[in-house]
Design a protein around this nucleic acid. Structure first.
Length: 180
DNA sequence: GCGACAG
DNA sequence: ATCTTGTCGC
């Protein structure tokens, strides 16, 4: 398969004003996510969105990954480090999360043996989501590379910024070492 | 009523 | 998420 590369990167900065409540993560992060995503949408042909958080493996099948995909009308995939809802079940030797009789997420093995939960967001099917996430791993990172980079960038920017009340969207380096 | 609970 | 020491594999 063709080698992929990071083309562009942006980070939205502002002091958060909504608390984290399980099941309502989108309310806390969407107003930061949207401005940053718009920078990408306005300049590139986007055909898939990876989101750090659950997709349909959510109490109302509307995790932040589903929410973002729906907002921009793009296929989306949810990648979460921890379970939110559902019970673990085994189908054909693979582990999944089942909620109210429906398989809503797959448990995927990371390069170092850990596990993450992959769920369909918008316009997406579980097995497609899993196959895509698997080819985006980059040893030894726990998250598929695009999300690892995003996570790293957000933490780095939080360290050297003074929390402001006004939203700022800043362009970022597309390589990991330059971001630290 | 009690425990669970993405980031 | 964040805090935080030592420890293990590559």
């Amino acid at each position: 398969m063709k080698k992929s590369r990071v083309v562009d990167c942006y980070v939205a900065i502002r002091r958060v004003c909504i608390p984290y409540i399980p099941g309502l993560l989108a309310f806390r992060e969407m107003y930061l996510l949207v401005p940053a995503v718009l920078r990408i949408i306005n300049r590139y042909c986007v055909d898939l969105m990876l989101v750090d958080g659950h997709g349909i493996s959510h109490p109302r099948r509307l995790g932040i990954a589903s929410h973002v995909g729906l907002a921009f009308n793009k296929p989306s995939i949810g990648v979460a480090k921890k379970r939110l809802i559902g019970k673990e079940v085994i189908r054909n030797g693979n582990h999944f999360l089942e909620y109210k009789g429906e398989v809503v997420a797959a448990e995927v093995r990371t390069p170092r043996g850990g596990r993450i939960f992959v769920s369909p967001g918008h316009l997406m099917e579980l097995h497609i989501a899993v196959s895509i996430v698997k080819r985006l791993f980059k040893y030894p990172y726990k998250l598929p590379y695009p999300l690892h980079l995003a996570d790293s960038i957000s933490k780095a920017s939080k360290k050297l910024r003074t929390p402001s009340e006004t939203l700022k969207v800043v362009k970022c380096p597309t390589s990991l070492d330059l971001s630290l």
